[in-house]
Simulated scan of single mutants.
Amino acid sequence: MREEEKKPTSKIRRILKQRWALSAIYIASAAIILAAAFLLQNSFDDSANDGKKDSAETGKNYDQPSVEVNSNLETIKMPVADADKTVIKKQFYDVNADEKAQEEALVFYNNRYEQNKGVDIAMEDGKSFDVKASLSGNVAKVQDDALLGNLIEVEHEDGVVTRYQSVKDIKVAVGDKVKQGQAIATAGKSQINEEAGVHVHFEIRKDNIALNPTDFVDKQASAIQSATETEGSTLDDSTEKEETPAVDESEKGTDLESGTDKEGSTPGEDSTEESDSLKDSLNQSN
């Protein structure tokens, strides 16, 4: 009986004495360890993927609001790469500005004076430059227009629109999403303001009411909403129309063909009567 009990043990000992025995044991052990590690890794990966899937499903309905909030918190920038190297050729027409500032903000074209609804920006050296998106948004309009020098409109949240005129080499199309600082065109020229040379006409509008862009540069886009709610009736309601009320040169009392006005003075003289007449005409048009 004892000899039979010793037989299995003897066989194991004989096997272990073989040269290949230990190597086989090591290989088998390593295989078992690797298989266990592989199974554990797959288990962790499946858990992580399930977590990501659940997270995506939970947050998928909130993608759009997230974009809106981030965009609304952007700081409004001038539509150029380096604002320090620019000059403003013509300022925004402000109904609350003094008489001289208002006259300087009038655009004269085709014997008519138009109120400037934005700012005309050019480089100090007069050279062309890339026009950048002032805010992130969606391109709503791209229009070829020789008079305005072509036009791009970008829509933002809360009824805010930025407009870029007098541009060429347009790089965007309707429906494109643009990021702040993205080049959307190149500065060009326009017939309506030839004296500005190579420039971009930049506007900010809230519910189709033109606002002074310089009032909001380096401020968050949400400041536009706050300003319009606070100021309310002080905004220039006449800008709600696409066609700006204009003053005919004949109403100002100037005979363009003869080169002299009806009072006998030459156009361009800085006289009190001429300023008063221009102011009265503007009030009538508003």
Rank of each mutant, 00 (worst) to 15 (best):
V160Y: 09
A187R: 11
V178S: 04
G181C: 06
K171G: 00
D158W: 08
L147H: 03
T162A: 11
V160S: 13
G149K: 06
G181V: 09
D169V: 00
N138M: 13
D176I: 00
V172L: 09
T162F: 11
F202R: 01
D144N: 14
E157H: 05
H156C: 10
G181Q: 06
G188F: 06
Q182V: 09
E194K: 12
T186E: 12
D158A: 14
E195M: 11
I204D: 01
L148T: 01
T162W: 13
K206P: 03
V174T: 11
V161Y: 12
I152W: 01
I204P: 07
Q182A: 15
V172C: 04
E203L: 08
D176A: 02
F202T: 00
L147D: 02
D144I: 10
D169N: 12
T186R: 13
E155P: 02
I170H: 00
Q191W: 07
S166E: 14
E157T: 14
I192A: 09
D144P: 05
D158L: 12
K177R: 00
S166M: 10
A146I: 09
K206D: 01
R205A: 03
H199F: 01
V178K: 04
A173N: 02
E194R: 09
V160K: 10
H156E: 12
E155T: 15
D145C: 08
V174M: 06
K171H: 00
E195S: 11
Q180A: 05
L148F: 02
A187H: 13
H156D: 06
V172D: 08
K189E: 15
S190Q: 04
R205D: 04
V139Q: 13
K141G: 02
V174D: 01
T186V: 14
V161I: 15
D176E: 02
